[in-house]
């Protein structure tokens, strides 16, 4: 028994010493500090106002260059707000857009979804400055999507207002941003000189003309030889 006691004592002392040694050269400090405003949960609506119904782990990059990792986040499509759960305060806040640069939904399968704060020129009422939009592809030609939901008032006195989700797609080339529909045909309008080329590529790759995946792949392909594609807004 005494032997065990001594062994335990020596091992624990060694562990203590190691802890003392490996206390490291980085001072303990608070994690990246997020700026948030008290969030008021939407009530009395039929349907979910969020991009994902459940909380997702997210990575938030702030304008000051700091990064907050593994923050439970949600994206409110109605108000175009990033909502986060403050683990220390046990409260939900909406992120102050002035402080946000971008954020990622961390998908366990590795398919992260990157959202940025739009800072380019405004496209009518559809895309405003500081809107949070998803980046489908970033390059010489960029493809963005804005997830939006509008509230449709119910005619029935006893029914709740309905949430109607919609998505708007945008192409950005240089400083110019234009809205496109989720249809390859709408790309022809801005690249009239490349119509045949695009059609041929679609046929070769057996892609449908109305899917987001095809759209993204097309822009990816166009970015491999951007000099061949003349943007005519």
């Amino acid at each position: 028994m005494k032997k065990y006691f001594f062994t335990w004592m020596l091992v624990s002392t060694l562990a203590w010493a190691q802890c003392e040694i490996s206390s490291g050269t980085n001072a303990p400090q608070e994690n990246t500090r997020l700026y948030g405003i008290a969030y008021i949960f939407p009530v009395g609506l039929e349907g979910s106002p969020y991009l994902y119904d459940d909380w997702q782990d997210g990575k938030i990059l702030l304008e000051n260059g700091e990064t907050a990792e593994r923050v439970p986040i949600r994206f409110n499509r109605i108000t175009n707000d990033l909502v986060f759960y403050n683990k220390e305060l046990l409260k939900v806040f909406r992120a102050d857009k002035a402080t946000i640069h971008s954020f990622d939904f961390l998908d366990p399968d590795g398919k992260n979804r990157l959202f940025i704060k739009y800072t380019g020129e405004e496209v009518l009422y559809r895309l405003q400055k500081n809107d949070l939009i998803e980046v489908l592809h970033e390059g010489h030609i960029s493809l963005y999507v804005k997830h939006f939901s509008e509230i449709i008032a119910s005619n029935d006195l006893h029914a709740r207002d309905k949430i109607h989700p919609s998505t708007f797609y945008f192409l950005k080339v240089g400083d110019q941003t234009v809205e496109v529909r989720k249809n390859i045909r709408s790309v022809f309008r801005y690249f009239p000189g490349n119509k045949k080329e695009i059609k041929k590529w679609l046929a070769q790759n057996q892609l449908t003309r109305r899917s987001e995946k095809s759209f993204t792949r097309l822009v990816e392909w166009m970015n491999t030889h951007p000099e061949n594609f003349l943007f005519q807004p």
Partner: peptide, 10 residues
């Protein structure tokens, strides 16, 4: 006037 957070500070 808003109730806000700055990291762990309410």
């Amino acid at each position: 006037p808003d109730i806000r957070c700055f990291g762990s500070l309410l």
